[in-house]
């Protein structure tokens, strides 16, 4: 006899070997909160959206940005802001659409794909934000070097000492370093959080995909 058939014989033999929960015990269970990965992905994703929206507000509120008030009428700056909000709305919509598609009554493969798709939306949004951060920083850097009076003063002083190049170099290196550290911390955070959360799902999804070959 086949090994599995032997197991099957035993498997269906005696249903009384399992614990028997009462009506009340089951009722209590449905009142409890889920700790599924979908719930965690949802919470973390919302936090990510909140984080990036907050960051953009905070940046706008800082003193150093007051120098750029004059930029409010700058067409490039305005279009960057409009594009930023438009894209936030787009990603937010996509995220909810994908999230609502996650259903435990789908096949295992479709369920996993929908979860990964929801994740991907947030991932793309974060990638967009990082690129956006780099672009706006360089844009701000360019504006500072050309229009900010305090900095222009310093450039003049540096130029008088023949250190204009050094001044530019230090300024740019500091900005690049700041960006690298910020992006590095974020990527590390991602790697840890999603690494833990999605390890099992990714492994099982790969296993299912492997069967298709």
């Amino acid at each position: 006899m086949d090994e599995l058939d032997l197991l099957k014989k035993d498997w269906n033999k005696d249903d009384n070997k399992y614990p028997k929960l009462t009506y009340n015990e089951i009722y209590k269970m449905i009142l409890k909160k889920s700790s599924s990965i979908v719930k965690w992905i949802f919470i973390i994703s919302l936090l990510e959206f909140a984080f990036w929206t907050l960051i953009s507000f905070l940046l706008k509120g800082t003193k150093s940005m007051e120098h750029y008030d004059q930029l409010d009428n700058d067409p490039i700056f305005i279009s960057l802001v409009v594009i930023g909000y438009g894209i936030l709305a787009f990603f937010f919509y996509m995220f909810f659409r994908n999230y609502r598609r996650i259903s435990t009554t789908d096949s295992a493969k479709v369920l996993m794909e929908n979860i990964l798709k929801t994740r991907k939306t947030v991932k793309q949004y974060v990638a967009f934000n990082l690129i956006y951060l780099v672009i706006t920083t360089f844009f701000a850097l360019y504006i500072s070097l050309n229009r900010n009076e305090v900095i222009l003063d310093q450039i003049e002083k540096a130029a008088a000492n023949g250190e204009a190049f050094k001044f530019y170099a230090i300024f740019i290196i500091l900005v690049v370093l700041f960006l690298a550290i910020a992006i590095g911390i974020l990527l590390l955070f991602y790697w840890v959080v999603y690494g833990i959360l999605l390890k099992r799902l990714n492994r099982n999804y790969k296993e299912l995909k492997k069967l298709e070959i």
Binding site: L7, K8, S107, A108, L111, R200, R203, N204, L208
Partner: peptide, 26 residues
Amino acid sequence: NDIEKALVFLYLEDKDYREISETLGI
């Protein structure tokens, strides 16, 4: 592994291959 267990589970529960394939999406 998890996927193999799912196949074994459905097999033990006497499900046919059509149902197994539909449940797992393969």
